[in-house]
Design a protein around this nucleic acid. Structure first.
Lengths: 205, 205
DNA sequence: TAGATTGTTAATCGATTAACAATC
DNA sequence: TAGATTGTTAATCGATTAACAATC
């Protein structure tokens, strides 16, 4: 464990390494090098070695990295060596897609609650989840150990709902609403806005 | 128009400015300052001024920026002062959510084709779109002017389908599959992987 | 005019790369 | 052993910030 502050930009790359290594492991590969991993993820070998070495000496000169060992270490560093309960806020089309998404389970996440403010949706089911009333959200979250929420609601209500999530103890928000959110310093937000992502590419066309 | 190469990191922030400005305009606000815009998007005023000034002098000392004027300029710079045709590859849950997403229209994008390799889905409709056979994808894309694709298919086939997209002339890919894609230098990829985004936050919990 | 805010410069800060001794 | 590859250092490169003259 390293006491120095690790830059956000390095933390941001670790999940990409993790994903690629998981994939290699699934294909039965036992060992890799910074060179090979770099080719997979499009990052220089030097940078990968530098990033990883922030946290310890996980490789061996001459042979590279044991994939299962590095996987274990990265999961531990990122704290996805456990399962996090996640609340899904908004049961629209995007909420439905996330509720049914199979990709969370083996990557450290488990949806445990789904909320919507539409009274007609409350009580209905998505997959195994019963949609709960958004009016009960704060109360339900406070009584749980949910620290992570995914927000799939319209931009107009995103900030006010975010304020409630923060009030209820949520510390990480995956925001699908197309708006920048204001949160305290101890709360993290990641943004997924398909139009914004597309607009980052059109400049180059 | 500036002949110098603009850093990717600046281009990446412009859509965020655009989104915030659009929102201000919708609220009837006419003018803003780098200070105010910065507070909305969580970026320093100095950086916003520096970013914008790469492309021209769009502000006025003393009064700031005209929102509609800056919107026009940013749209022009990002080339979203037009409507781009987009192909959606994969008609699963995520594909459905994107096909029905209302947020593309006024931000420069329009889905014109939906493909799936499941013969049972081919011919069915999502909203107004008839799902087409993935076997016809290259041919259909080549006959179109589609330069942008959204990829919502399993990771296992993402690279091979990407190769086909590139072959068919696609230059920008919004990738929802949880895998890094290899593409030529003249093709851009943006990644949306909810699990990866969540894993960028757990470190801080 | 006086106050406000831009655009830009220079200084600072941080990230990436190249290179190589250490060593498996 | 010989070849390969790490971890790390120093150099380079790039991004951010602070400050302020210009000017609306």
């Amino acid at each position: 464990m390293n006491a120095e502050k690790i830059p956000d930009i390095i933390i941001g790359r670790l999940p990409v390494y993790l994903r690629a290594l998981q994939r290699m492991a699934d294909n039965g590969i036992k060992t890799t090098s910074s060179q090979e991993l770099g080719e997979h993820v499009g990052i220089s070998a030097a940078q990968i070695r530098k990033d990883i070495s922030q946290f310890g000496e996980f490789g061996k000169q001459g042979t590279g990295y044991s994939i299962t060992y590095l996987l274990d270490k990265l999961r531990e560093i990122l704290k996805v060596d456990r399962i996090w309960d996640v609340a899904l806020i908004g049961a629209g089309d995007m909420g439905h897609a996330l509720a049914r998404y199979q990709g969370f389970t083996n990557r450290g996440f488990h949806i445990v609650m789904v909320f919507d403010n539409n009274k007609e949706k409350v009580g209905r089911k998505i997959d195994n989840f019963v949609i709960e009333d958004a009016d009960k959200m704060i109360e339900r979250l406070k009584a749980s150990n949910v620290k992570i929420a995914m927000l799939t609601i319209p931009a107009t209500s995103a900030q006010s709902v975010t304020d409630k999530l923060v009030q209820a103890g949520v510390r990480a928000i995956l925001n699908y609403a197309p708006i920048s959110l204001n949160v305290p310093n101890n709360v993290k937000v990641q943004y997924i806005d398909p139009a914004t992502h597309l607009q980052r590419m059109t400049y180059y066309l």
